[in-house]
Amino acid sequence: MEYEFHWIIVFQKLPQLLNGAFVTLHVSVLSMLIGITIAVLLAIMKMSKARIVSLPATLWVEIARNTPALFQIYMAYFGLGAFGIHLSPYAAVLSALVFVNAGYLTETFRGGFQAIPKTQYSASKSLGMNSVQIYRYIILPQMFRRIYHPMTNQFVWSILMSSLGILVGMDELSGETQRLQSLSFRTLEFFIVAAVMYFLITKLVLFSAALIARRVFRGDL
C-alpha cells in the first residue's frame, strides 16, 4: 500500500507549530537557568565534609541520574497530587527538567572545580591576589571553559526531553503536534515536520554555542 502525503494542512498550521517550538525553547532555557542555580548550590553542598550537608545533595544527584525522565515527569504531574500539589503540564515538565538538569550539572560543576589544581590558589595568593580576584581571574574562567561543553549538551538534552510534555498534554512542540494531527489525522506529516523542527532547533543551539565559544574562549579551547 502506498501512502499519499498531504502537506498543505501541515503548512497551514505552521504558525501553531512554531508557537509550540517557542514553548519548547522557553521551557528548556528556563529549566537550564534554574537548574544551573540549584546545581551550583548542590555542588558546594556535595563538596562539604559534613555528611549532613553532602547527603541531600548526593541523594538528589543519584535519583536524578538513575531514574527515567518520564518517571520524573509522572512524579511531578501525578505523584505530587498525593500531597495536594497539582501542577499544570508546563510546571510539571519544567520541574522535572530542572530536577534532572540540576542533578547532572552538579557533577559537571564539581568535576570542573576539582580539575583545577590547588597549587593555583597558593600561586595566585603569593602574587598578592585576594580571594575575589583569585576566583574572578584564575579559577572561574578555567572552570567555565571545562563546563561549557557539558552544559551545551545538557541544554540540547533538555530540548529533546521536553518532548515528553506530549504525555501530560503540554503545549510544547510535541504536544502541539499531537493536538494538531488529531484534528486532521495527517499524523505522519505533522510528526515529520516536528522531527525536522527539533533537528533544526538542536543544530541552531549547537551552532550558536560554538560561535559563542569561539568568541569567548578565542580559540584556545
Binding site: 529533546l160 526531553m161 510535541s174 505522519l188 510528526f191 533537528f199
Partner: peptide
C-alpha cells in the same frame, strides 16, 4: 537530534 518519542511515533505510524 530528534527526540526518541517522536521517532517512536513516526516509525509506528509509518
Amino acid at each position: 537530534s530528534v527526540p526518541l518519542i517522536i521517532q517512536l511515533i513516526l516509525f509506528s505510524t509509518y
